[in-house]
């Protein structure tokens, strides 16, 4: 869902930027020799643009940080004890401490035995739900609140060698 919203914004934003460049690029004629005058008009627009950019950035910044499944944020958000699943990984397979997971809050303790991997959870439709890195010597705590039962897939989201693209497995939420 979030991907579709941001993706749409990405495309619309690109179109707006192109339109502005098109407008300015096609307004090069006729030459106005009073550059000072042109520049002052431009700088007046720039001031407005600066404040608009600041406002939009601040809003997106805050939404982004809060939407981010960082342990500190998620511990504040998630009520009750999460169900814990230990995830171990190695070239090129996933090892889960449970393949059946209850609905509700879950904490994945993700790590790796060899190189860096990426723990990406995909839903039945092939959409990315959430992810974290899997790094040797470290444990990534990834909180997820499952609200939809069904089969989920794990795909590797950090390049880990020749079979990276087939490093996948499944689990079920019910």
């Amino acid at each position: 869902m979030i991907q579709l919203i941001v993706g749409t914004a990405a495309v619309l934003g690109a179109l707006i930027i192109m339109a502005v460049f098109w407008k300015v690029g096609t307004s090069s004629m006729p030459r106005d020799d009073d550059y000072k005058h042109v520049a002052e008009a431009g700088y007046a627009i720039r001031r407005k643009y600066f404040w608009a950019l600041l406002a939009v950035s601040l809003v997106l910044f805050i939404i982004g940080v809060l939407a981010f499944p960082y342990p500190k944020v998620m511990e504040a958000k998630i009520k009750g004890e999460p169900f814990v699943v230990k995830i171990n990984s190695k070239q090129f397979q996933w090892d889960l401490s449970a393949a059946q997971i209850p609905l509700g809050p879950v904490r994945f303790d993700v790590t790796s035995q060899d190189v860096n991997h990426g723990f990406g959870i995909y839903d039945e439709k092939g959409g990315l739900v959430t992810q974290s890195q899997a790094m040797p010597d470290y444990v990534n705590k990834l909180y997820v609140n499952f609200t939809k039962p069904g089969k989920y897939k794990i795909w590797c989201l950090e390049y880990c060698g020749v079979a990276h693209h087939i490093m996948a497995t499944e689990f079920e939420v019910k």
Partner: peptide, 10 residues
């Protein structure tokens, strides 16, 4: 960067 969890390594 702002919505990295949704796009990282995609």
């Amino acid at each position: 960067a702002g919505f990295n969890n949704a796009f990282h390594n995609t």
